[in-house]
Simulated assay, not measured.
Amino acid sequence: MTPRNCLVTGASRGIGSVIAGRLSAAGHRVALTARGADQLAEVAAKLSGPSLCLPADVTDPAAVDNVFSTVEDAWGPVEVLVLNAGAAVAKPMAKLTDDEWYGQLELNLTAPFRAMRRAIPAMTRSNWGRIVVIASIAGKIGEPNLSAYTASKHGVIGLMRAAAAELAKTGVTVNAVCPGYVDTPMTDGWVGKIAARTGKDRAEIRTALEHKQPIRRLITADEVADVVDLCVASAAITGQAITVDGGAVQS
């Protein structure tokens, strides 16, 4: 494949860092953004090709615009956009605050919208582009104690579908990857919060998450990256929310 200019959000750890590594190994130029500068530098040091470390808060519109402008000044327009930044607030709906609700929508739905809006004009001008949103199986089913996260992930899948339909004739594809429970620091954080709230043993909680998936283990970040690779390579896959969860949600 022709080397492309890639931007990966939430690239400092977990799924995002693995995706960045895959894109770099495939010969692409990879710009990394997340809030942690030190962690971004550690990821970039392991990449095999050109990279840019661009610390930013993706919920800040000015910061996002600056990230895109920096990539454009260095390499040209973003051609592959992987929207991985996200987080979850785990608590019963009755205890969820307005600030937590709006924070989840801002990070998991509005930030991807702003990044897509910024990337699309250049992609359509060149008649080529790939946008991949890392969503969740929570975008397809209801998850208890994750109401704001679930709503935001349902929303971002709807956003992806609308964008894919709008851009179908332009050479730009838009897809979502919907992992189940993945072996990442984010899942470790969930386990810790559940343990603190319930008093249960962390190992017991982790096993329960593993058993939610028929393959009886957590998904690996590499298995999520496999599907991102497919979405980047294919011009015929668009408007899809591809589930990677060991068979828990069959769709």
Score class of each variant (00 low, 15 high):
M1R: 06
T2M: 05
R4G: 06
N5V: 07
N5P: 04
L7K: 02
S12F: 09
I15Q: 01
G16D: 08
S17E: 14
L23W: 06
L23T: 06
L23A: 02
S24W: 12
V30K: 11
V30D: 11
A31K: 13
T33I: 14
R35S: 15
A41T: 15
E42W: 11
V43K: 01
A44Y: 14
A44Q: 13
A45G: 15
L47W: 15
G49R: 13
G49T: 10
S51M: 06
L52P: 05
L52I: 13
L52Y: 08
A56H: 03
V58N: 05
V58W: 07
V58F: 09
T59V: 09
A63D: 01
N66E: 15
V67H: 02
W75A: 04
V82P: 10
L83Q: 11
N84R: 10
A85I: 07
A88T: 15
A90Y: 15
K91C: 15
A94Y: 15
D98I: 11
D99V: 11
E100H: 03
G103K: 04
Q104S: 13
L107P: 05
A111F: 04
F113S: 01
R114T: 01
M123V: 04
T124C: 06
R125A: 14
R125W: 06
S126E: 09
N127C: 13
G129L: 12
R130E: 09
I131V: 15
V132F: 11
V133Y: 05
I134P: 14
A135I: 04
A135L: 05
S136Q: 09
S136T: 07
I137K: 02
K140Y: 03
I141W: 00
G142P: 09
G142K: 08
S147L: 09
S147D: 06
A148S: 13
Y149I: 03
T150W: 14
K153Q: 09
H154P: 11
G155Q: 05
L159W: 06
M160E: 07
A164L: 10
A168E: 12
K169Y: 08
T173M: 01
V174T: 01
A176W: 04
C178N: 10
V182Y: 10
V182A: 10
D183V: 10
P185L: 13
P185Y: 06
M186V: 07
T187S: 07
I194A: 04
I194T: 13
R197K: 13
G199T: 10
G199C: 12
K200S: 15
D201H: 10
R202V: 12
I205K: 00
K212T: 10
K212P: 03
P214H: 03
R216Q: 12
R217S: 06
I219H: 01
T220A: 06
A225E: 00
D226R: 01
D226F: 00
V228M: 00
A233R: 00
S234K: 00
I237P: 01
Q240S: 05
T243D: 05
D245A: 03
D245K: 04
G246E: 00
G246C: 06
S251E: 08
